[in-house]
Amino acid sequence: MSLKISIIGGGVAGLCVARELVDRGADITLYERGDGVGKHACSWWAGGMLAPYCEGETAEDIVVQLGLKAADWWQKSVKKGIKSGQKGAEKAQKVQKNGTLVVSLARDHADLERFTRRTRCFTRVGADEIGRLEPDLKDRFSKGLFFESEAHLSPREVMTTLRELLVFEGVKFIRDEVEPELIAKDGLTIDCRGLAAKDSLADLRGVKGEMLMLSCLDVSISRPIRLLHPRIPIYIVPRGDGIYMLGATMIESSGGKYATARSVLELLSAAYALNPAFGEAEILEIGVDSRPAYPDNIPRLTRDGNIISINGLYRHGFLLAPAMAQMVAAHIFENKSLEMKHEYSA
């Protein structure tokens, strides 16, 4: 008889853990707050950049290390969905491995120099190369960095595909907000609730993020672009079909249902700086949510009796959830420690 495990939380962490545990033959029940993949999880608003080297500018080395194999993990997981004919899987197939381009306006070249010093695995690119990589940015930037090995995905499509595949494989999804302590009486429970677990995880805090979804058929960009800026580093991630995700602010605040006018202005003016044609873009969505983070902005795996909790993925949900999920699986099935180690890279 297979091991029964409950997972609480249907965001990116919960789904990745379910994937790893199902692969090891566990019998999974997953409790989710909302109806399927949706706005109740902060991963709904994620950028979906799998950019460990770029994140290394400010993130600790372990974040870079654990994130290195994320793109392969997602590609493999989504492919399974395509094979079993899950609808939407074709679109979600787009775990695109075509790199990240980092640029800055001339007045902020000092920030580009700093980014160069703090990161690795890139090539320096000039105006010609930038124009070749992204024709719609031609002649707009004289210097940049190209991180060729990085990738991106569409969070919503990918999570939907993953969830459908898990349903197909027999994972029971139950819509209910449950307390881990109650569920854990019946067996091993993985708490993947993110900020909702704040009451039991004292150090956890929220970091507010704001993002926009734009539709702009006049601009064609094929890979994530990071525009450096001394105060608000901004990125734009193509979702295909002229849709772009523009993010994201980082504000030390756990509340706020709404984006501020200032944040929206700053995000939009960055898009406009990339290409003035974004001025004609339609704003499809303004998204706001808080990411769960620990004081060192590094995720943690902890165990208290029958409850294992994964939390604090901060702005690195899609980048780190696969490695975290594998660590949980190795702990349960191979009795490995939950301590974060560098050698654990998916």
């Binding site: 805090r205 929220g206 504000i251 030390e252 605040s253 756990s254 509340g255 501020t260």
Partner: peptide, 17 residues
């Protein structure tokens, strides 16, 4: 202080730190 974090004391965690 970002004005928005002041509202409903949403920045509480950071300030306590």
């Amino acid at each position: 202080l970002r004005r928005e974090s002041g509202k409903d004391k949403a920045g509480q965690d950071f300030w306590e730190m």
